[in-house]
Simulated scan of single mutants.
Amino acid sequence: MADYTLQEKEGFTVLGIGTELKSDYTDFAGISKEKSDFWKSVEQDGRLDALKAVAANEYIFAVNEAVNNQMMHYAGVMTAETLPEATRAIQFPEGTYLVIEGEAETSEELSNTLTGIAFGQVLGGLEEYAYVGGPNATVEMGQRNGMTFGEMWIPLVKK
């Protein structure tokens, strides 16, 4: 099984610019393409730079959340500020989080790899905790030796 830790985190807010994912939740290729297209768009049109300008730290969040029966995906930053182009202030609860570290050549590869490990390997094997929904995020933390590094954060509840 993949390396992971369980960590206690204080609640926090991520300001996000989002899109609804239209692919079926089992269509990994379709979801990946939609996310990739969305990230290219927010990088090219300056919305990601606008978020970075109000960020409390260097972290870039790729957030997944079900809202009103819609599968949403957000580009976000940790901040107490707001922006007109932001679509949601995403509340992450205080509590226990599954944290998986990783690195990859690109942000997209990092997100896909960590998501696959979390949902394909680790969550099903946890005996004392469960993921019952709510926002989860891949957190891009920086670059080192030409690689993008970061973590997947998934809030858990005690079974």
Rank of each mutant, 00 (worst) to 15 (best):
E8I: 07
E10R: 10
E10A: 12
L15Y: 04
G18C: 03
T19M: 08
T19V: 15
T19C: 01
T19H: 03
E20L: 07
L21D: 04
L21E: 02
S23A: 15
D24F: 06
D24K: 13
Y25L: 12
S32N: 09
S32F: 00
K33D: 09
E34C: 04
S36H: 07
D37I: 08
F38D: 02
W39C: 14
W39A: 05
W39L: 15
S41Q: 11
S41G: 03
V42D: 01
D45A: 02
D45R: 10
G46L: 10
R47E: 02
K52N: 03
A53T: 12
V54C: 09
A55T: 00
A55I: 07
N57C: 04
N57W: 01
N57L: 04
Y59I: 07
I60P: 01
V63S: 02
N64S: 14
A66N: 09
V67Y: 03
N68V: 01
N69W: 04
Q70S: 14
M71I: 05
M71L: 15
M72S: 02
A75T: 01
A75Q: 03
A75W: 00
G76H: 05
V77M: 05
M78H: 12
M78A: 06
A80E: 11
E81D: 13
T82N: 13
E85A: 13
A86T: 05
T87P: 00
A89C: 03
I90F: 01
Q91R: 07
G95F: 04
Y97S: 05
Y97F: 15
I100G: 02
E101P: 05
E101N: 15
E103T: 11
A104H: 11
A104L: 05
E105L: 11
T106E: 06
S107Q: 12
E108D: 14
E108I: 14
E109F: 00
N112D: 00
T113I: 11
T113K: 15
A118D: 03
F119Y: 15
G120D: 02
L123R: 04
G125P: 04
L126T: 11
L126D: 09
E128C: 07
A130S: 11
A130Y: 02
Y131M: 01
G133W: 11
G134Q: 09
N136Y: 15
N136K: 12
V139R: 04
V139Q: 06
E140L: 11
N145K: 13
T148W: 05
G150I: 08
G150V: 05
W153V: 07
P155F: 10
P155T: 02
L156W: 13
V157F: 04
K158V: 13
